[in-house]
Amino acid sequence: MPAQRFHGQIAGVGSTSGVRVVIGSWRRTPLGTFGDAMVETASGHRVLLAPSAEVAAFIEATYVFDEVRIEPISVATDAGRWRVASPSLTLDLRVGGRMPLGRLLRLVPGRVAASPAWATVVDPVARVALRGVRTRGTALAGRREYYGATDLHAVTSVAGTFDDERLGALAAVDPPCRFGFSSTPRRPAVTTVVTTVVTPDPSGCREVGTRL
């Protein structure tokens, strides 16, 4: 099947409570427009919040969680603000200006920046410059992933709750999240991204490319 593109943004934040959250806001995908959240508590418990069984199944086939919750989740984004709401999680993020790395990313043509080839080239740099961040790697079930970032903005504040417990103030994403081979940047940020997931064909004859 032809490669499919999922265009969106990822917000990664830490908090003084020790809870770290990665929120996805996906605008154009074969699964429709949706939001999801991956939460890691201070004790290391990893929770996926997904809006449907279909979305949960795709994410579970790529990442590792201790618990999966299928529940309504809304991710509303506008200039300078993200608002996330689900039965388990509420978040209000304030987003600041473009970071220096974001300015560099904007210099790279979009088609190049989103390509697996570019993700392969920049992976060694990302490993050194951004603790815990990888732009390519191997996921579950033999899948290969490539993250193509095209912009980066700082998150300046966070307020919210997880399971009715307050998260506290904004903090670094530290230690890095353990959902897959890559975490979000240590400094809380919103990344505009295209992720390419290459899935082996069950027949073993070819690979199926899915871009998330």
Rank of each mutant, 00 (worst) to 15 (best):
A172I: 06
L105D: 02
M99R: 13
V194A: 11
T135P: 00
F181V: 14
Y147C: 07
H45R: 15
V122E: 07
G24W: 06
R5Q: 14
T184N: 05
T16W: 06
A171R: 08
R211I: 08
D123E: 12
E165G: 06
C205W: 11
V64T: 12
P175V: 07
R94S: 14
G160N: 08
F58E: 08
I10F: 13
A119S: 15
G148I: 03
G110F: 09
V122Y: 06
L105R: 03
M38V: 01
G180Q: 08
S74I: 11
M99F: 09
G12D: 07
T156W: 07
A169Y: 03
G204H: 14
T16A: 07
T135F: 13
V84I: 15
A57W: 02
A189T: 13
T195R: 13
A154L: 08
D92P: 02
G148C: 07
F65A: 00
R178L: 08
G160P: 06
G80A: 08
L101M: 13
V122G: 00
R144A: 13
E145K: 12
T29M: 10
S25K: 14
C177D: 06
F6C: 12
G142E: 10
T77H: 11
P124N: 09
L49C: 01
R69G: 02
R46H: 03
L167P: 05
D201S: 14
R83W: 03
E207M: 10
Q9W: 12
A37R: 01
L104N: 05
